[in-house]
Amino acid sequence: MRAYLRFELRRLVRDPRLMFFSIIGPVATYLIFSGWSAGERLEGLAAPVAVMIGLAGYGAVAGVLMVGSAVSQERAVGWLRQLRVTPLTSGQVVAVKTLIGSITAIPPVIAVGIVASIQHHVELSAGRWLALLLLMWTGTVPFALLGLAIGYGVSPHVAVPVNFLVFLALSVLGGLLVPAAYFPDDLRHLAHALPTYRYAELGWRSAAGQPPTATGLAVLAAWTLLFAAVAAGAYRRSTARR
């Protein structure tokens, strides 16, 4: 299994285009738009910090979903079938793909963090930065599973648009691009039920020195279970097909 992880990491490094898009999007958005709300307070934080976390999450979710749904391509070219006639189990394959997916969350979080500290002199203690990075990384597990669900569930030419729509809906409605505080009431309630908002909330609260809320964790856990179930179901269906 370590060998497969190494193999996948090497592929990731060899094709950095995937990373490029998940970094450039949130960094550019931060540079352009973070100035507008600079004097305000959002999610209990100074706006530049809150927007930084939202956009870092936006990039992280983009990368994680992209890696997951790329499984669709691997399925189509017969790679998963090839692996099934090796000693590697399907469980190990899924575990490695989930881990690889979540790792792609790290570069955009670091990149947006650097831009924020330069542009708006966002200052956090080293411990806070580290906690933030860890939370923004581990919090992507539901999205890695969602990406796998898309990758196993739909054919490659549909996977890209499905992935994009799901990503856009979750990130916009979850308040990663435009803070949910600016939403009308109904939309804000919706945002609070979405995994993207609760994921970013982990970061917001951590940066403010607060522990996660029970509600937030429960919502994230529920979505994680749902996405895991859908991914497992889609996986079973995809291997049953000849």
Binding site: F7, R11, R14, V77, G78, Q82, T86
Partner: peptide, 25 residues
């Protein structure tokens, strides 16, 4: 081990990469 008709490799890996992967498995 098998060579299957509808199996294939993922892009982004070299021949050596896939051989080393198989060796490790």
């Amino acid at each position: 081990a098998a060579m299957l008709q509808d199996a294939g490799f993922v892009p982004g890996a070299t021949v050596r990469d896939v051989v080393e992967l198989a060796r490790a498995l």
